[in-house]
Design a binder for these strands. Structure first.
Lengths: 136, 136
DNA sequence: TTAATAATGATAATCGTTACTATTATTATA
DNA sequence: TATAATAATAGTAACGATTATCATTATTAA
C-alpha cells in the first residue's frame, strides 16, 4: 500500500469535502467543490490525489457499472444500492450478502465457487423506499 | 426491448464468434476475430452490433470494474469470478448469492435494503483452483 | 537556508466508446 | 424481377473520463 510523503492543501480539501459529504461524488463533482476554495486547482490534481488516497487506503474508489468512477470516504467492506428512479446511491453493508457454500470449512474445495473468494463487489439496482412511496 | 430489423453478415459473424468462444471477450478481441473473416469490418460496426444485440436481449454486456466492457452470450442471471492471479473470468450462478432479508415476504419494507431490489450485479475477486494448486 | 524532491497547474495524450455521413446491402412491394 | 424504402455499413471524427508530461512551486529534511 502506497504511502503519501508530503502533504498538500489540495489533498486536505479533498478529504474534508469527502467527509462532509455523505454521497458518492465523482471526480468532476469533487473538482467543482474544491474550486470554490482553491479556484485554480487542476483536474489532474484531483485525479492524482483521489488515486493516491485510494491506494493509501484512506478512501475507496467505486467503479460504477455506468458512468464515471465515484469516491467514498467509507473504506469498510460494503456494496451499493442504486435507485433506478432517482439515481441515488445508498450504502449496503457487506454482510447483507452471502455466498452460498462459503460459510462452512472455509476451504475453497468445498465452496461452489471456482476458487478462493477474496473480495466481493456488488451493486443492487432497484427502487428506493422514497420513490416507491411517491409512486403509491 | 429493441428489435433488429435487417440482418447482416457482420452481426452473424459476431454471434457465431461469441457462441463458439466460452470466454468473455471485449470489443477489441471480437473485432480482431471478425477481421479474420471480414477484413475491412469497422470497429464501429462491432460496437453498434454488440449494443444492439445486448438491447435485443441476445447477449449480455458485462461492465467490468476494471478495463473495457466484455460481452457474454449467456443471458441468464449470473455474476463473475475473476482470478487475480491468471485473470481468468468464470461464470457464477446468481443463486449462489443471497441477499439477507430478501427471502421473506418479498416486501421491501421488511428487507434490510433501502428499497426494492430488482437486480444484482456481482463480481467476486479471488484465486481460482488452478492457480491455488499451482502455488501449492 | 539550502538542497532534495514531492506536488502542482496547465495542457497534451490516451483509451474506450459513440456519433456522423456518404455509400452499400437488405427487404418489402409493385 | 425491378424498384423504392430504409437499415446497416466502412471510415473517420468526436467524445468523455482518465492518465501522462513537464516546467514551476511548495514541503520537508538536513
Amino acid at each position: 500500500m502506497a504511502v503519501i510523503s508530503k502533504h498538500s492543501k489540495q489533498r486536505d480539501a479533498i478529504m474534508e469535502y469527502l467527509h462532509g459529504n455523505g454521497s458518492h461524488p465523482n471526480a468532476h463533482e469533487i473538482y467543482s467543490a474544491i474550486r470554490e476554495e482553491i479556484p485554480n486547482v487542476s483536474l489532474g490534481t484531483i485525479y492524482r490525489n483521489l488515486n493516491q488516497l485510494a491506494e493509501a487506503g484512506e478512501i475507496r474508489k467505486i467503479r460504477c457499472t455506468d458512468g464515471p468512477d465515484r469516491f467514498d470516504f467509507r473504506t469498510d467492506d460494503h456494496g451499493h444500492f442504486i435507485c433506478s428512479c432517482c439515481g441515488r446511491f445508498y450504502d449496503v453493508p457487506r454482510d447483507l450478502i452471502m455466498i452460498r457454500g462459503d460459510e462452512g470449512t472455509g476451504s475453497p474445495e468445498d465452496s461452489m465457487l471456482p476458487g478462493r473468494a477474496d473480495s466481493l463487489e456488488f451493486e443492487i439496482t432497484g427502487v428506493c423506499l422514497d420513490c416507491l412511496r411517491e409512486k403509491a
